[in-house]
Structure formats: structure tokens, C-alpha cells
Design a protein around this nucleic acid. Structure first.
Lengths: 181, 181
DNA sequence: TTGACTGTACCGACTGGACGGTTTACCTTT
DNA sequence: AAAGGTAAACCGTCCAGTCGGTACAGTCAA
């Protein structure tokens, strides 16, 4: 197997471990076992556990960026519709991206500095909110609501059903499209 | 010192450790040192580390409930204004409650099941959103935006300035008061 | 009032297990 | 045979929890 794909499969194994056993069980041994490797094999591809976690967070951010870019493309790359695309991207996160999200947890637990790629994403995103047709404040509220939904889901404390989420999506899409008054 | 206040001071010490050194440094020894006790002393008051973390989460939820109840009282305990009170409560969280929030992190890291008190709070809160004058959907968006803000802050990835937050508070208060259309 | 006894609060050495990382040896593939 | 990749034993550290002990305040019978 090519080097890159082994690294990818290790990251996938790490995600599985988080989901199935919790962030605190993400040890080199557990990840290795889930990846069908020994610890030595994992450490061959990532020099340290921390490096693995950084890669995990980075991959999550990259994946979301792609989903977001796709959604924007479907809207003709119209900057005025980028917030709408953002809503669609968050709700359109398929299983795999939802799974990737939990990559945050072990990183957060072991060293919050590892969330830097995510911080970068947010800085950039919030800095652009002024360019939407709905004004910065409203765009910020839409974004924060999406984050709230996503984070509650990730932390496993969200009481929302699928139906709830669909209703929320509708309202957020509306708020992402036209100013309220 | 009365037993209860020793327990309280241990929890306070634990919060300090989270804030100053990070969730992964919340060990019994570290908490004991911060509380001016030995590990044995801490374990005398909390049989296990997990019990301590549960108490920490519980205390945070209780504290927020009080702040929320106060805000409601200031609005004449009018059910129609409970969402408005919720907004005010979240923005009005003083330092001490903000500090308490980070209690989530070590619990999350060691065992997500410890967040149960928080889950209970959310279940209850979302179940009540239908009773607001702005409709369930809009109330949910307001709540989620507050959660997003709070969680991003807690995870240390919020790019919002105080000024940003004030603008957001204004809009959320409006959305908590009257329906948009 | 004094000495035996009890319960509360706490200390600190120690244990056993988990985990990150190292080392070394082995096996393919080229 | 050299290089890439993997396995497995091993090491040192960290940490939750245990346990034997101390200090001290009350209680109570003689």
C-alpha cells in the first residue's frame, strides 16, 4: 500500500477508536490494533502520537473545506451565497465527516494547542462574514447556531432529532439568504 | 472547616488547574496541591477521581441554573420572556461561571458519560422552547447560537471580540423577543 | 479529672497497571 | 544485499487508588 494511504487508514482507525471507545482510549496500541498494525508500525508513519492527532485535526478541517467548496461551487461560486453554502455544507456533512469531527476530542484532551488548524479556519471564516448579503451580525448568528449544533452533537449532548434539525436547517437557510427585520 | 466547604474548595482548585494547566493536567496530585491538601485528603472527600469530576459538572450546571433563574426573576418570571432571560443569563455569566465551564473538559476527556447532568439540562431546555412567543425553530436557533458561542469560547477557538459579542447579544435578544419573518 | 475509646480529617509511601516511545530483529521487495 | 516496512519485547514515567498511620476533638465511665 502506498505510504499516504497507510497514513490515511491509521487516521481512520483512530477515528473509529474515538467513536467506539471514547477519546481517552485513543492510545497508540488501540489505534494500531484497529488499523491492523503494531504500535511500531503506527510510529513508523507518525513519529509521535501528537503528530498523529495533528494530522487527524488537519484532515478534518481539510475535508470540511472541500465539502464547503463543493457547496459553493454548486451555487455558482457566488460570494453572496457563500453563507448559504456554509449552511448546506454543515447539514450535508455525511457520516464520514461527522465521524471525522470527533478527531477534535483526543486532541483537545491531550493538548488544546493541537486545535490550531481549527482556530485558523474560524478566524478566516468570521473575518469574511461581512461580505454576506445579510450583514455581519446575522451571519455570525447563523454560523454560531451551526457550530452549536455541531459541537453539541460531537460532545454527545445534543437532544435534537433529525426532524428538529431539518426545521432548523430551513430557518438557517432563510437567515443565510435574506436579512430579517 | 465544614465538610461541604472543603468539597467546594477542592472543586475550585480543580477548576483552577484546568484553567491554568489544561484538562490533561487535572490529576489527583495536582488538584490536591492546588487545594492545599494531599491526595489522600482529596480522596477522603471524593471516593474516586470520577466522582470529583461528576461533582464539578453538576456544580457548573447548578450555578448556571441559578443565574438563569435570577434572570427570569428580573423579568417577572414571565414564561414568554424566558428565552430572553436565557440570552441574558448566558451573556451575563461572570468570570466565576465562565471558569466553571471548563469543568466540562476533564470530564469529557476521561469519560463522556460524566456529562449526564448537562444532557439533562439540555433535554429539559429544548423541550420548553415551544412555549416562547417566537416559535420553536427560532428559539432553537437562538439557543444553538448561544451554545456555539459558549462552546467555542470554552474550547479556546472563538475568534470573537467583546465588541462582536455585544453585537450578537443585541440581535439574539431581538430574536428571543419577537418572531422574524 | 482522667484515662480508654471512637469518629473525623488528613497524610504520604507504596502498588499495579497503562501508556508513550525505543530498540532490535525479521521479512519482503527491488 | 540494501531499503522499506512491520512486529514484539522492553523501558521509564505517570497516575489512580490503597493502606497504615497520625492528630485531634468528643464522649463517657470510673
Amino acid at each position: 500500500m502506498a505510504k499516504e494511504s497507510v497514513r490515511g487508514s491509521i487516521l481512520g482507525a483512530a477515528e473509529r477508536v474515538v467513536r467506539e471507545r471514547g477519546a481517552s482510549h485513543v492510545t497508540l496500541d488501540a489505534v494500531a490494533e484497529a488499523a491492523g498494525l503494531s504500535k511500531g508500525g503506527v510510529l513508523y508513519h507518525f513519529q509521535t502520537k501528537e503528530a498523529m492527532l495533528v494530522a487527524l485535526v488537519q484532515r478534518m478541517v481539510d475535508t470540511f473545506r472541500e465539502v464547503y467548496a463543493d457547496a459553493q461551487a454548486r451555487m455558482g461560486d457566488d460570494p453572496a451565497r457563500s453563507l448559504e453554502a456554509f449552511v448546506e455544507a454543515v447539514f450535508g456533512m455525511d457520516e464520514s465527516l461527522g465521524h471525522a469531527s470527533c478527531a477534535l476530542l483526543p486532541a483537545l484532551a491531550s493538548n488544546p494547542a493541537l486545535l490550531e488548524p481549527l482556530r485558523g479556519f474560524y478566524r478566516h471564516h468570521f473575518a469574511q462574514l461581512g461580505n454576506t448579503p445579510v450583514g455581519w451580525d446575522q451571519a455570525a448568528v447563523v454560523t454560531l447556531a451551526l457550530d452549536g449544533m455541531w459541537l453539541l452533537e460531537m460532545l454527545g449532548i445534543s437532544p435534537l432529532t433529525d426532524k428538529d434539525e431539518r426545521r432548523i436547517q430551513k430557518l438557517l437557510t432563510r437567515m443565510a439568504t435574506a436579512p430579517i427585520h
